[in-house]
Design a protein around this nucleic acid. Sequence first.
DNA 1: AATATAGTTGCATTATATGCATCAAATTTG
DNA 2: CAAATTTGATGCATATAATGCAACTATATT
Lengths: 259, 259
Amino acid sequence: MAEIQSLARGLKILALLADSPEGGSVTEVAEALGVDKGSASRLVATLVKYGFAEKDPLSRRFTLGPQVVTLSRSLLTRMPLRDVAKPYLRELMRSTGECAHIGILSQNKVLYIDQVESPASLRVNAEVGFLAPLHCTALGKVLLAFARIPLPDSLERFTESTLVTKEAMRRELEKVRQQGYAVDDEEFDIGVRCVAAPVFDFRNKVIGSIGISGPLSRMTSANMDSLIEQVLLTSRRLSEKMKFSQEQDHGIISKKDEE
Amino acid sequence: MAEIQSLARGLKILALLADSPEGGSVTEVAEALGVDKGSASRLVATLVKYGFAEKDPLSRRFTLGPQVVTLSRSLLTRMPLRDVAKPYLRELMRSTGECAHIGILSQNKVLYIDQVESPASLRVNAEVGFLAPLHCTALGKVLLAFARIPLPDSLERFTESTLVTKEAMRRELEKVRQQGYAVDDEEFDIGVRCVAAPVFDFRNKVIGSIGISGPLSRMTSANMDSLIEQVLLTSRRLSEKMKFSQEQDHGIISKKDEE
DNA sequence: AATATAGTTGCATTATATGCATCAAATTTG
DNA sequence: CAAATTTGATGCATATAATGCAACTATATT
């Protein structure tokens, strides 16, 4: 699979700019890619020209450009799952009082595609576009358990509670499958608990996971059961809705357009 | 300014995919760019390889990939204005009951970089990443009036009330400058009114605009005055805060890093 | 003001992207 | 259900476009 070198370089630069909070200079970019300053200069100039990067004239450093935000919206607003899920997220947040979010599998991580914030002043906030590890988040565990994707080779430790052995992980995923939901008990962020459950499409394939996150102080063992109940209920209702809307889509697609 | 052709082509493809709801096929892409099918095939393959595009195996069509969502988040979470504005947006939404949003100038349009939704069931929703015209939105008029950028050559009509002549626009902008705020009275969407005011940085340069949008039924002439008051108050407070945080930044930047 | 560092641009070279043709796969049609 | 047609992928030779070098300009540092 031959890749187009200059395009690949440009895309690598975008990833680079995304990773460095201060942006990147031409020389840094050149070094990172192992190309000449001249080439780097021309590549970033092209990115700027199309709005994918921006130059701060003062520092002469480059950052991501607004075009990526526009593209992102374009993608997000066209995700059927996201569209359908919105009211369910709102309802889930309302009934639990915690931040509700929905994620999909992307690059072997979980990508948060939408969120409804809790009004509480102490709350967990997972920005749309956030890319989290699978093995230590509730949303991620659900995807691992139901999507039947291979376990990541190394399970990075984030806190004391992170499950880092494949064996422990396998047992955990078995449990998730049996229960139908996953819990993250301070395995990624200290002081944060999450609950998530799968969303299935009309073929009973997992297409995402939906859940809530909140501080330990509110997500206590005393009310975990009712929170889990809410999440499960929501995930089932959403799955039903998805089946419905996708069967409709299916019908529409099979009817061929004229011309 | 020589642009790197293949990179430019790749970026054009991304814009293309963003514009077509159904995504694009290899042949369509090839036609749109005026290149060979083979080249188009290799270009999209590269985009897919780096997560910027995705292939639906069934329809063999390409859509934007999740990488753009990740990049977008990376950019948005690093915008100082966005960070600082969040609580002000929340407060503005709470005090007015309407959807509050904040935008910046991008590609001669206004880019919505954050939003707080109203809980009302009838509400206006402007997704983050939305790119709206300057001349017929409150956020946009504010930018036009205070950023001293040239008027767009043609003022597209969206509704009966859209101002489409340069002369009318100039008068309107003069009014905006005098009042310190802008109103959009069904000039973009029927049934929707918006109010917005500028956000200034420590140099008194406009860096964005903040405002609210709501249905005519709630944004009546009777309560417009108080809504305007709220927006103005918020924009002034936010500007103050921005001055403060930027002066701090300024200090940090001028203190050179070791190494 | 002088020096050093960083970014841009012109130009010749070479590698790379391109188009064509072929092949494979999938979709449509008879 | 097979034949035909459309669509996407890949190998290869050619030509073009991207590259690196070097010279130059602009900015930052001393």
